[in-house]
Design a protein around this nucleic acid. Structure first.
Lengths: 333, 333
DNA sequence: TTGTATGCGTTATCAC
DNA sequence: GTGATAACGCATACAA
């Protein structure tokens, strides 16, 4: 492959001059600049980013570790991260951790070895030694969507508390009293936070919190389905099932359908985390929408700040309730 | 950051030996191996993949350029590619081209500069000079999902022809005669192929091909909606709308709903390209499913073959019809 | 303004 | 089995 040396020879200048032209240093004649550019074009020269990175200690690459790109929430997040990164001249390498600590570690290790300039992590429940090391090492790192207790890492996340309060109030206003919640893993900050908000909101609306109306899933569809099944088999089943994320809502939806029950007549359904196709199911599903694109963009900006050694304060974005018809709301006019 | 040199010093050996241990060369005593490993652990040494790549001319990284990660088809594809690549010890960098040639080129350029070991491209319609160069340069490259006319590049793709024939036959059997098709861009191999198959299949079933029942969209939802609208306003509207991809099907669905029409009573709907949520809309949508995971896996395998300079023949996978209820099929028992 | 020379962290080719 | 050392392609301090 043709290198800077061949370009220099072809243009009749030194490698230093070629390098200066490529990094458009001001101290170079318009004339030589032209010669070099001509040589570059003629030889189809492509700068070797690997060599450049070795020299400059910068790869202009960001690492992003998410749960699973097949989850629409993460897909939107990833897309936003990539767009914002590209705008700033960075490439991003995505790793799907699948909520498995070992796989998360695999990516952390790999990305660290690749010498990415910064790391964006949606941390799994477990605080692995490797992640602890990273934090201790102090490399540019920001937590995305979730936080990890006891670690001093800047984070960019969504707070769904007020939206959950709004949802419960909304359901209360519609006349519902028995509202069950399929919560997420207690170990995840998002899981804990939503559960806490649900309980607080129920109390705030003067509703009873029943133990049998709360069960923790793993943010995957199967658990949502299983838990919905148990709710529906209770002697006194809930009037509303509120799922803690879009996949568990999907599972619950399947279970309700499988039982031949109607939404919302037999049981109403709501979801934390809105996804595009919720609009297209019948009835459209009432959900709490997270500003995923903004989340991704802000995370990149925060990370870039950290890369440039500027201090960055945590970012917390609000979620918002989107009422549709799965809870018996009156249809659109 | 600690390098191989510090490790060598700490272990009391030479850098060469450390390198040998790290690449587990056989010619090294168990004893020194242990010493080195101890030093590695003690110093929290992380190999610098950048330096390694510069020396070995290999990055163990693959580039993947797709249309848009938000499209479930590409998301599944990307996920499969990543899984297969990881299993083979590779990392993958994904670029979203958004069907824009310049952006595709941006990623091709970037990935080439990063010296990825191989490139997987779902090419946009246009054959850009850059892509032509790549082909001419002969670096490891395979086309995924789509092919480009006149370029000698191995490709891994799906052939939906027989599935489309099956679909038309299926519709014919259900009594439909007026079947309209929202086709994809003529410039895309997938678009052309599906259109051709639709026409052939219509003829094969003895159905009339009407010009007003065929219109090309751009594989995006908005175009599907607009075209569906025109179809439905025809003096004699079609009985079935068959969309050339999942996003255009979504657009058509929205348009049908917006007009207050019922599926399949007023108009039936079918889609090329099945996605998870088709099962959850009411009625579930009849679709042609592409083996996206397999497509991704096979593409990686083909690329790895090319990287190791082995010849690779094109891969063509079959699609299959999944009948549900959006075309008036009798419901499940 | 341009050229020469050094080093980035690793692997690989030699000697020993 | 181990060690010294020369590349890899580029950016840059310093010399001219």
């Amino acid at each position: 492959m043709v290198g800077i040396k061949e370009v220099a020879a072809h243009a009749g200048v030194s490698v230093a001059t070629v390098s200066r032209v490529l990094n458009d240093s001001p101290k170079v004649t318009e004339e030589t600049r032209a010669k070099v550019h001509a040589a570059v074009k003629a030889l189809r020269y492509r700068p070797n980013a690997v060599a450049r990175s070795l020299r400059t200690e910068a790869t202009h690459t960001l690492g992003l570790i998410i749960g699973d790109i097949l989850n629409p929430f993460f897909a939107v997040l990833a897309r936003a991260v990539e767009d914002e990164a590209r705008a700033a001249g960075y490439t991003v390498v995505i790793g799907n951790a699948d909520e498995r600590p070992e796989q998360q570690d695999h990516y952390v290790r790999t990305l660290l070895e690749q010498r990415v300039d910064g790391l964006l992590i949606c941390p799994t429940a477990e605080v692995t030694p490797l992640v602890e090391d990273c934090v201790a090492a102090g490399g540019p790192l920001v937590f995305l969507d979730r936080t990890l207790p006891g670690l001093e890492v800047p984070s960019v996340r969504v707070d769904g508390t007020s939206a959950i309060h709004e949802l419960i109030r909304h359901l209360h206003d519609l006349g519902y009293r028995r509202i069950a919640f399929i919560s997420g893993p207690e170990l995840l900050s998002t899981g804990r936070e939503r559960t806490q908000a649900y309980m607080d909101a129920m109390r705030a609306s003067g509703l009873e919190i029943r133990e049998e109306y709360m069960e923790a899933g793993d943010f995957q569809a199967a658990s949502g389905q299983a838990i919905a099944a148990r709710f529906l088999e209770l002697p006194e089943p809930p009037q509303v099932i509120f799922a803690g994320d879009n996949l568990m809502a999907l599972g619950a939806l399947d279970e309700i359908r499988a039982r031949g029950m109607r939404i919302p007549e037999d049981v109403a359904l709501a979801s934390f985390d809105d996804v595009a196709w919720f609009v297209h199911v019948d009835p459209p599903i009432t959900a709490i929408a997270q500003p995923a694109e903004e989340l991704g963009r802000r995370a990149v900006r925060a990370l870039l700040e950290r890369i440039e050694h500027r201090p960055v304060e945590p970012v917390v974005l609000p979620a918002r309730l989107v009422t549709r018809r799965s809870c018996g709301e009156t249809g659109k006019p």
